[in-house]
Design a protein around this nucleic acid. Structure first.
Length: 135
DNA sequence: CTTCTTACA
DNA sequence: TGTAAGGA
């Protein structure tokens, strides 16, 4: 049973073993290799996030494809670089633009997005959804 | 009972 | 990778 109750699910190494099919030995070894960095409880127990599960399953796949730890590190690194690049692209598209009222006067809704009209806002929100959907 | 680290096979 | 040991 977990000591902390946050909104984000967390797993013990035992649960991770069941969910990934990997042995505890492998999970800890991949951590030593720098592939994952699970948090720890005050009692030094490992705490795995959904993101860690995802990474471990990717690692499992690649291992079954015959890749070594080094190769997986590269793959994971390029994936992280791609994410950073995309984040910069999105940020750049927003930076410098003035934030405007979204439908001011009608309910007082305020948009946090620097867009000038509803169509543009919906387009942005639609793109964000598509990203989550491909999970 | 589960998980942790260290260390040997 | 598996597993034993010894502690939390």
């Amino acid at each position: 049973m977990s000591e902390l109750d946050s909104k984000t699910p967390i797993y013990s190494i035992g649960v991770v073993q069941e969910k990934t099919g990997l042995t505890g030995r492998q999970i800890r070894y991949y951590e030593d290799s720098g592939l994952i960095k699970p948090a720890r409880t005050k009692g030094n127990q490992r705490i795995y996030s959904p993101n860690d599960i995802k990474k471990l399953e990717e690692i499992k796949d690649m291992l079954e494809k015959g890749l070594n730890i080094a190769g997986i590190k590269e793959k994971l690194a390029s994936a992280a670089a791609k994410k950073t690049k995309e984040a910069k692209r999105v940020k750049k598209s927003y930076d410098g633009r003035p934030l405007r009222r979204f439908n001011p006067g009608k309910g007082g809704l305020t948009s946090l997005y620097p867009v000038s009209n509803r169509a543009q806002l919906l387009e942005i929100l639609d793109k964000k959804e598509s990203k989550k959907d491909k999970e």
